[in-house]
Design a protein around this nucleic acid. Structure first.
Lengths: 147, 147
DNA sequence: GCTTGTCTTGCAAACCTTTTGCATGTGTAT
DNA sequence: ATACACATGCAAAAGGTTTGCAAGACAAGC
């Protein structure tokens, strides 16, 4: 998952452009986000940034703030835990726009289906009468390694 | 959502056939399940059956048991709450097999896409190398009423 | 460079739903 | 009718998500 990291200064600029102050914890979260190919949970962020000594609540609030600013997307893959991943703005092939996520119910592995298109076959018109737009897709099943 | 309710006695028979005892709380949960067109949360069951005075933990365990027996499916629509719905066995058009669920991110309404087929376009083979089988699909977006 | 006002951080605790332990009670087979 | 395994109730532990509040840090302006 080749990721073109954005420089620290650009990151700061992006934050301020979004009306957010560029604080150490916030930049660290955003920076860590850049190195991940799948959405991470709050707990994983806390563990990953433990060496910095940032408070868990601070990291949590930053994730929420970054979501509000459009930098990250928040998804729930079905295990009652929020996961966050980079989205759009920060110029990155993986983060560009939304993409479906796949979760293996057996091993729990999470995969981003970056280039996959999903098409619905609206059998008897029923779908169109309810669904206007789809912005998030989660697929669950069994991965090839567990099959 | 025309639902052909199964008689109380048949219900009892089904339970016992599955190796579960037919107790009052269990039958009540299963019975309530039959009247629902969308998956309900544990809390909603507790509220709906409050008049019976059943313990919340009992209802919870029954839902899990019924899942284990294959009577109900448990889905997580993304709000960190388990929801349960009838599945298969109990002879019902809505419950027959799995179906995708749609959640409106704005109003929160949940819809079962009973007759919808979902097709993936596995762009560059990437998908097939990870996904073996898909058993659960959750779509999120905006419903027509909120559009 | 220093001051000020506002946004953030830390720490602690509240909340909610999900889960589990354990003694008591009940369905079922014998 | 009896006995045993399964279920129920009640209470509380867990795990993650959220929020309150006082102290601290960023960024703008003097």
């Amino acid at each position: 998952m080749a990721r073109t990291k954005v420089s620290l200064d650009s990151l700061r600029g992006l934050l301020r452009a979004a009306g957010l102050r560029s604080t150490a914890p916030r930049v660290a979260v955003l920076q860590h986000l850049q190195g991940c190919s799948v959405p991470l949970s709050h707990g994983e962020f806390v563990a990953a940034l433990a060496s910095h000594g940032y408070d868990a609540a601070t990291i949590y609030r930053n994730l929420i703030d970054l979501e509000g600013a459009g930098f990250v997307g928040r998804v729930n893959l079905g295990d009652n835990v929020w996961r966050f991943e980079l989205r759009g703005t920060t110029g990155d092939s993986h983060a560009k726009g939304e993409h479906p996520h796949f979760v293996c119910l057996q091993c729990g592995e999470i995969t981003c289906l970056a280039d996959v298109r999903v098409k619905l076959s609206p059998a008897p018109g029923s779908v169109k009468s309810v669904v206007s737009t789809i912005s998030d897709i989660v697929l669950k099943g069994q991965c090839t390694r567990c099959a």
